[in-house]
């Protein structure tokens, strides 16, 4: 998986490209820890080019959401594919995130 992180003003955009499986989740752990520090503002997870999400990926999303709740920011999940949306629905996490097309 490839990720790029851009910060402008109060918004941190994380573009995630490829499969967010267990291995990828471990690879991006360090970068995502830096993103957690930005959750006092808005974090946008751009998933337009994400092709798969595993439980480890869901855990990354949940951690960010928890941090944002503590720090008073928000996490927006943007442009998820129908397959990934189904994963969120099947696990009951769909209504937990602000999902935008």
């Amino acid at each position: 998986m490839e990720i790029t992180i851009n910060k402008s003003d109060n918004v941190t955009t994380v573009r995630m490209i490829g499969r967010l499986d267990t291995t990828a989740a471990q690879e991006i752990a360090k970068d995502m820890a830096a993103v957690e520090a930005e959750t006092a503002g808005t974090v946008v997870l751009d998933c337009s080019e994400m092709t798969y999400i595993s439980s480890s990926g869901l855990r990354i999303f949940l951690t960010l959401r928890k941090e944002a709740a503590v720090r008073g920011g928000k996490v927006i999940v943007k442009s998820i594919s129908n397959d990934i949306r189904q994963v969120f629905m099947m696990t009951g996490f769909l209504n937990l995130f602000q999902i935008e097309d």
């Binding site: 439980s55 869901l58 949940l62 009951g92």
Partner: peptide
């Protein structure tokens, strides 16, 4: 429904709201 949806996946985390949903 839940069994059909997640039974063939390796998803090992669910929300407690999956039951009522």
């Amino acid at each position: 429904i839940a069994c059909y949806q997640i039974g063939l996946t390796d998803l090992d985390i669910i929300s407690s709201t999956i039951g009522p949903q």
